[in-house]
C-alpha cells in the first residue's frame, strides 16, 4: 500500500496563496516583456492522480511546447511551462517582432527566446516562493520540446510515479488580453519536498 501525504484543506489553501503570488509575479514579468495585459486564473493546487494530469492541458495527444526546468535547493522539484502550439507560435511572433501568423515552426532563435521566457517566469515564481517560505530554490537551465502533451508531462510524472500514485500540482493558466496566448505553468515539487514546503507554510 502506498502511504501518500494527505494535505488538509488549510494547507492546500496556504499553498494556493503562495502559488497565487508566484504566478502573479510571473504574469507581471511576462506582461512587461510582451507589453500586453496578462490575466491569470486562480491557481489550481491539488493532489491529482498521475494519469489525469495530461487532461489539464487538453489531453495527452494535444501538441504543446514544453519548457522544462529542474528546481534545486531545499525543496527540489520540476517546473514545466506548457503552451499549446498555436500560443507558442504567437508568443514567438510577439517576442521576435514578427507579424502574427508568421511563425510556423520553431528555429533555434525562437526556441532560445521561449526558453528565456521560461527562465524569467520561473525566476519570478520562485522568488515569491522564497519571500513567503524562506526556502530558496534555484532553477536549472531550461530545456524545450514541442510534442504531445502526454509525452512531455511524462518527464515530471515519472519521477513522482516512483513515490506514489498522486502528484501535488500547482498550476496556473495565463491568458493574454487578446486571447492569442494561453499557457499553463506547473510547479511540481518532488515527493520529498512536500514535507519541507508544508512545514515552511506553518499551517496544520
Amino acid at each position: 500500500m502506498s502511504d501518500e501525504i494527505k494535505l488538509s484543506p488549510a494547507q492546500l489553501d496556504a499553498l494556493r496563496e503562495i502559488g497565487n503570488i508566484g504566478a502573479g509575479n510571473s504574469a507581471t514579468a511576462l506582461s512587461q516583456i510582451i507589453n500586453r495585459r496578462i490575466d491569470m486564473n486562480v491557481p489550481r493546487v491539488s493532489m491529482v492522480p498521475l494519469d489525469q494530469v495530461p487532461d489539464l492541458v487538453g489531453g495527452p495527444d494535444a501538441i504543446v511546447v514544453g519548457i522544462f526546468l529542474r528546481v534545486y535547493g531545499k525543496a527540489p522539484g520540476n517546473i514545466l511551462f506548457l503552451l499549446p502550439q498555436k500560443s507558442a507560435f504567437y508568443l514567438v511572433d510577439t517576442l521576435m517582432g514578427k507579424k502574427h501568423g508568421e511563425t510556423e515552426k520553431l528555429d533555434y532563435m525562437d526556441e532560445s527566446a521561449l526558453m528565456e521566457i521560461g527562465n524569467i517566469l520561473s525566476g519570478a515564481y520562485l522568488n515569491a516562493f522564497y519571500t513567503f517560505t524562506q526556502i530558496s530554490m534555484l532553477p536549472s537551465i531550461p530545456a524545450l520540446a514541442m510534442d504531445m502533451a502526454g509525452a512531455i508531462l511524462n518527464v515530471v510524472l515519472v519521477q513522482l510515479g516512483q513515490m506514489g500514485d498522486q502528484a501535488l500540482v500547482m498550476e496556473t493558466e495565463f491568458l493574454a488580453e487578446d486571447d492569442g496566448i494561453n499557457g499553463h505553468f506547473f510547479l511540481v515539487p518532488d515527493p520529498g519536498s512536500l514535507e519541507t514546503l508544508i512545514k515552511a507554510v506553518g499551517v496544520e
Binding site: 495530461p54 489531453g59 495527452p60 495527444d61 504531445m148 502533451a149 509525452a151 511524462n154
Partner: peptide, 9 residues
C-alpha cells in the same frame, strides 16, 4: 486498443 502521448513510457 490505443494509448495516447507516450514519452518515456
Amino acid at each position: 486498443i490505443i494509448s495516447y502521448g507516450l514519452g518515456s513510457c
